[in-house]
Design a protein around this nucleic acid. Sequence first.
DNA 1: GGAATAGTGTCTTTAAGACACTATCAA
DNA 2: TTGATAGTGTCTTAAAGACACTATTCC
Lengths: 247, 247
Amino acid sequence: MAADAWSPTPVLLTVDLVILTLREERLCVLLVERGEDPFRGVLALPGGFLNHAGEEILDAAHRELSEETALATGTVHLEQLATYGAADRDPRGRVVSVAHLAIAPHLPEPVAGTDARDAAWVAVEAVLSGKTALAFDHRQIVADGIERARSRLEFSALATAFCGELFTIVELQHVYEAVWGTELDTRNFYRKVQAVKGFIVPAGSGRKSTGGRPAQLYRAGPQTVLSPPLIRPALAEVQGNEGVEGL
Amino acid sequence: MAADAWSPTPVLLTVDLVILTLREERLCVLLVERGEDPFRGVLALPGGFLNHAGEEILDAAHRELSEETALATGTVHLEQLATYGAADRDPRGRVVSVAHLAIAPHLPEPVAGTDARDAAWVAVEAVLSGKTALAFDHRQIVADGIERARSRLEFSALATAFCGELFTIVELQHVYEAVWGTELDTRNFYRKVQAVKGFIVPAGSGRKSTGGRPAQLYRAGPQTVLSPPLIRPALAEVQGNEGVEGL
DNA sequence: GGAATAGTGTCTTTAAGACACTATCAA
DNA sequence: TTGATAGTGTCTTAAAGACACTATTCC
């Protein structure tokens, strides 16, 4: 059993999901409108309590993910992000959330949640700038998730998780540009991604002629760690350029 | 309140600590011998349940840390590592652990734990290789903590947390070598650490003459992010060289 | 002077960044 | 042939890696 006189205090565990995708070359996060108190009517991350005592945390995240996106579970990248447990983060009591980061290929339209909550893709800038208010500490969780994704793009092959099975190098470049929020030089990008062994492998020169020269197609290669990495451009001495936006 | 028919299942929350330090130029982790079941007598990470319903997770980690190391709390680097919640990880029931990573300057001797458990510094290789058995899933947690520390050394100023307030460049190099498990070239190391602005700042040419030329002393600088980073040497095409060791 | 530790300088190679044009297809 | 998109080559600069000797102190 536990320790001596006192018993450990039980807490409620939830999983929350930061699901990122690209829509029209913008990085978006999936949010749902809460159908119940607390924060009824406010946007929040999809998530929920563990289903039963024996449910694994990662399984619960997968379950929530497929409920919200109706995507084949194997297709989507899913990893644990961090745990948020501030004593006052949930007015219902002590609720600790294990946040996860999911990356999905472009989903055209959000799928209505199981319990009739509205789901919507929201551009991440609206969340980071505070223009879109979120329930609980979910804005912080989104910020942490985005930072994780930005970092992962440098050192792992995560970018391919934003693409379908087949993709072009230009599409991949758009992933990097949208997630990092920068513009990249096409020539240097081509050179660098092709220099990383096992990152992307050619998959024939396929279809989809959009009125220009048809693109070479690629699929994700076997390598998950990029070597050499694709370092994101330094933010040029970050001074006071934080979150200042339209509002 | 929660959802519809069922109520969310409460779980017990613990914090576990991967406390790393250098002893005789080897990377060591602090382990305690468990005084109670389950795993009585087996080595485990220091940690424990939250003290009361309102205790913050990070506060609990700090509390456990000072109980084990008797170190000024402000001195020690402490960050959340990951959360481990496999349904079968603890025979007592559903116990979810939020693991933390702590980095401490060389502590000469382990401090006996509060409840008379024996505490000991163990070289990390003994844990990673399986030579030293650990309770629960603590071996995995240690492995994850070490990997986190290795990565942090590349991009953050974490290495200085292994040193006292004043240190020499050679000492700093030993930190990198011990944590990464590699040997570094002295000349390149001097050049690189001094090229990173704000990483280390000179603190006079102090005492401690050990029979050779007295070393320049440094203290940690204001910068926590290293730019350019100190990339660890590639592991030369990792093939099948995983965890194979003495046992 | 010798033992011990601290500190440095140069050359080569690799990758990054800046920069503008050619190639292929559809209408 | 025009519009649209895909793809490439070179030069310069910065950083990494390899490599061996000089400097300062104590005895």
